[in-house]
Computed example of a mutant assay.
Amino acid sequence: MLEEFSDGYYISRLCVAAYDGEHAVMECTQHEAANEQVYDVGDGIGRADQPLLVKVDESHFPVLAADDVPSGTLAVPDGVLEATRVDDPPAMRSVLVAKPDRATQLLEWFTPYTVNEPDYT
């Protein structure tokens, strides 16, 4: 689902659609697979409970899992969607998913507290 893009991001192509919910979401199985790839700590152990930090155009936002989203879709609340250049959703778009180090860096820039690295032991 995710391909290497840069030192800080993976890339995927998803249908970006408007969503009535409070948070951006994607289908549970896809979210879990992406999460395991992004947060893999070796020996097949991955984190399936973390939000993914995605970038659409210049906007970063967390993505959670949801049962009511079609596979291959990134469902984005209207308020978040307005900050992107997706003018006529649904639309196929390249979506960047931040790797752990980049996500931690971004979260520290945008939160008033320190983000600690997860303890995988």
Rank of each mutant, 00 (worst) to 15 (best):
M1P: 10
E3M: 10
E4I: 03
E4K: 06
F5A: 12
F5W: 14
F5H: 12
D7I: 00
G8M: 01
Y9R: 03
Y9N: 03
Y10R: 04
Y10I: 04
Y10D: 00
S12G: 08
S12Q: 03
L14M: 14
C15W: 05
V16P: 06
V16Y: 02
V16E: 05
A18H: 02
D20Q: 11
G21E: 04
H23L: 07
A24F: 03
A24P: 00
V25P: 01
V25I: 08
E27S: 06
E27Q: 15
E27C: 07
E27R: 13
E27V: 06
C28P: 00
H31L: 07
A33D: 02
E36A: 08
E36F: 09
Q37I: 15
Q37E: 14
Y39G: 03
D40S: 13
G42R: 08
G44T: 03
I45N: 05
I45T: 05
A48V: 05
Q50L: 08
P51S: 04
V56K: 06
D57R: 02
E58I: 11
E58F: 10
E58D: 13
S59T: 14
S59Q: 14
H60R: 13
F61S: 07
F61H: 05
F61N: 07
F61Y: 08
V63L: 05
V63C: 11
V63K: 04
L64I: 10
A65N: 01
A66T: 07
A66C: 09
A66M: 02
S71Y: 09
G72P: 09
L74I: 08
L74N: 09
V76W: 00
D78K: 13
G79F: 13
V80Q: 12
V80T: 15
V80Y: 01
L81Q: 06
R85L: 11
R85T: 11
V86P: 06
D88R: 11
P90M: 12
A91C: 03
M92G: 10
S94D: 09
A98G: 02
A98E: 01
P100D: 12
D101T: 01
R102K: 10
R102Y: 03
T104K: 15
T104L: 12
Q105C: 01
L106S: 01
L106Y: 14
E108A: 09
E108C: 14
W109Y: 07
F110V: 11
T111Y: 12
P112I: 01
T114Q: 13
N116A: 13
N116C: 06
E117F: 09
E117R: 15
P118G: 11
D119A: 12
Y120R: 02
